[in-house]
């Protein structure tokens, strides 16, 4: 198994600082207030973004079970065959791709409530589990 690690950079440092404290940050336009997932660099209107907290509550939009080599053993499904990944809709509106570690994919349902947790791979990263 791999020992995958994330190395922070300048753009992601505030996000990983908050994640280490168990807080999920997302992006908000400083001008129009539109919200974006963490990796967004600019608002669609070209204005700069700022970091704001998200509640970490979400609903499940889609999921898939990747049977290729797992990035890390911690990301395997409950049954251990494959890694479950998903798309979640944050309560605030933006969608995020996220790992759903340790879940049983047969228990997942469209629109089911999810909540953020954090898993550490060098840096803490948000993952989502059924609420």
């Amino acid at each position: 198994m791999s020992d995958f690690t994330i190395e922070r950079n300048e753009a992601s440092a505030p996000f990983f600082d908050a994640a280490r404290e168990g807080r999920l940050l997302i992006r908000r336009c400083t001008v129009c207030g539109r919200l974006y997932p963490p990796q967004q660099r600019r608002c669609v209107d070209g204005e700069p973004l700022e970091w704001v907290p998200a509640t970490g509550a979400a609903t499940l939009i889609s999921w898939a079970v990747d049977h290729g080599a797992a990035v890390a053993p911690d990301l395997l499904s409950a049954a251990g065959d494959g890694s479950v990944i998903g798309v979640v809709e944050l309560e605030e509106g933006p969608w995020m791709n996220a790992a759903l570690p340790g879940v049983d994919p047969t228990q997942l349902r469209d629109g089911m409530p999810m909540r953020v947790e954090f898993a550490v791979f060098g840096e803490a990263v948000p993952v989502f589990l059924p609420a």
Binding site: I6, D66, L75, I85, N97, A98, A99, A119, V125
Partner: peptide, 9 residues
């Protein structure tokens, strides 16, 4: 790195 964990890869 976040995308590696979150997928899709």
């Amino acid at each position: 790195g976040l995308a590696m964990v979150a997928g899709p890869r």
